[in-house]
Design a protein around this nucleic acid. Sequence first.
DNA 1: AGCCAGGGCGCTC
DNA 2: GAGCGCCATGGC
Length: 266
Amino acid sequence: MKKFILDLNLTLLSGQPPHFVWSREGEKFIRAWNGKIVEVSQNEKGEIISNNKKFCDFTFRAQDDLKKIYKKISTDSFMEKAIKDYYGLRLTQSDVWETTCCFVLSSNNSIPNIRKSTQLLMQKYGEKIESNLYSFPSIESIAKAKESELKKCKVGFRAPYLKHTARQLLENDFSFSKKGDAKCFFLNCLGIGEKISECISLFGYGFLDSFPIDVWVKRAMQQVYFNGRETKNEKIIEKANELWGDLKGYAQQYLFYEFMSKKGKR
DNA sequence: AGCCAGGGCGCTC
DNA sequence: GAGCGCCATGGC
């Protein structure tokens, strides 16, 4: 893997879809992909070591020049501090179905619970690759699953959402090249609204101008740019556009992580 | 016990 | 089209 700025631990544990899928094994992170194990680790020099460079380049968006991105999103002292604190936090990209599944699970849920449910789904519906390693479930396996069985994976009220959304993906071509087309499609899926469709657009398709507003991003934006006042999402997006334009998705990840990881300390 | 979590649905008005 | 209660589950 070519040298580029990456904090592997930070990136894989920052609440993006890989957080829910990859597992730590000693110094390495592992997951299944295409029926095989992918391993990735980082040595003391910061070099990335993996047995599947291509998949890592995709996952960690190797095409992004982080220095250029930092220059563009360092719009103020808050962003400068967030970048300094979380230097090497990269935006990730994941398979569209994986991204969709993870974020359908995210509604009114916590990151540890999303991971737990994702792992349970992998064990129940994925393919066994090694003794304790399972692939991500196929779209088909979730589409044909019984809701009562899905609920055994602690997905709660999201069971019908998962099943219906899997069916939608099964029956349609979802290889969109425009953000608007992707959003239109996913907004019509059960259990997916404005926020989650923005997440799929960002983390699944890699449209960096997406700007999902969850409770943390909302708090961050209100506190930093609106003097702590309650603000409509429309105004928040307007501000994000003004500040970061087509890179607001990247800025969003720093806002999210800054506020989420320091909950209780403020 | 009650509130909150990378929200969205279905119902009011 | 905006506002509100509700939705499983688990942590604090």
